[in-house]
């Protein structure tokens, strides 16, 4: 009985308003609700948007550099079959190493360390898919190209690569999605990207912050996945044109 009396009396002793201002989702954030939309939206520009930008930048660097390396390696492997096995083994070695091991700060707590890990991860997927795509060109098609007088370089550019595009883009798709996913873990060593609020907020227990960042990371991965599917449709119009006739 007495605690009730005390709490009932206490507000009277204060000069401020008796009923606190619960507007703008304050109640939710004060009780550390699972996900406070108001707070998320209010802080979006300041807390989340820069992280999304960093995340995209980290992903783009890794996928672009990974693709350049993998593409060069795949062309060499395509031309000289004896390189195929060593390349495949090195790439799969990278992939078997646990993600978190890549981010052990041996080369310092920098973006470079994170990027090395991310690029390593993209290599296997991109090398394998590019080689698979180039090797998948039917022998009859190659023979026809040679019969039409295509030089090797010409044949690579005009025949092999266009036919390998679906496989290459499928690899790009898996690589991009995987990189977005892994880039959250990269925040373990350098506070960049959407992983940073996740790691920070898990420690401080601020639900909305890490749930919001997680939802953004998931959305980013799904949107990127869909964007690449659309890209694939755009760059391989023949794949669609052929469908009705078959």
């Amino acid at each position: 009985m007495s605690p009730v009396a005390v709490t009932a009396v206490a507000p009277l002793a204060q000069s401020g308003p008796v009923i606190p201002n619960f507007g703008r989702g304050d109640d939710c954030i004060r009780n550390n609700g699972k996900f406070c939309l108001h707070w998320f939206l209010d802080n979006f520009d300041e807390r989340f948007l820069p992280r999304v930008g960093e995340h995209l930048k980290m992903t783009a660097i890794a996928v672009v550099l990974g693709f350049v390396i993998a593409f060069a390696a795949a062309l060499v492997a395509h031309r000289h079959a004896r390189f195929k096995l060593p390349f495949a083994n090195v790439a799969s070695l990278f992939y078997t190493i646990p993600s978190i091991a890549f981010f052990v700060p041996i080369t310092g707590l920098t973006l470079t360390t994170a990027e090395i890990g991310l690029i390593g991860y993209t290599l296997l997927i991109l090398v394998r898919n590019t080689v698979t795509g180039l090797d998948g060109v039917p022998e009859e098609v190659r023979e026809a190209a040679r019969g039409m007088g295509f030089k090797p370089m010409h044949q690579l550019l005009r025949i092999d690569l266009p036919l390998a595009v679906p496989a290459i883009i499928a690899g790009l798709r898996v690589a991009t999605v995987t990189t977005i996913s892994l880039a959250t873990i990269a925040a373990f060593i350098t506070p960049l990207g959407l992983g940073a609020p996740i790691f920070n907020a898990i420690q401080s227990g601020a639900n909305t912050e890490f749930v919001g960042a997680s939802l953004l990371a998931i959305a980013l991965a799904l949107v990127a996945d869909m964007a690449i599917v659309l890209l694939q449709r755009a760059v391989t119009p023949w794949a669609r044109a052929r469908r009705p006739s078959t």
């Binding site: 898996v174 977005i180 998931i218």
Partner: peptide
């Protein structure tokens, strides 16, 4: 498969941590 592959593990852990 594609949708599951796109889900970042850390984000999944964080969300289910809240739940």
């Amino acid at each position: 498969s594609n949708v599951f592959r796109a889900l970042p593990s850390l984000a999944l852990i964080a969300i289910s941590l809240a739940l």
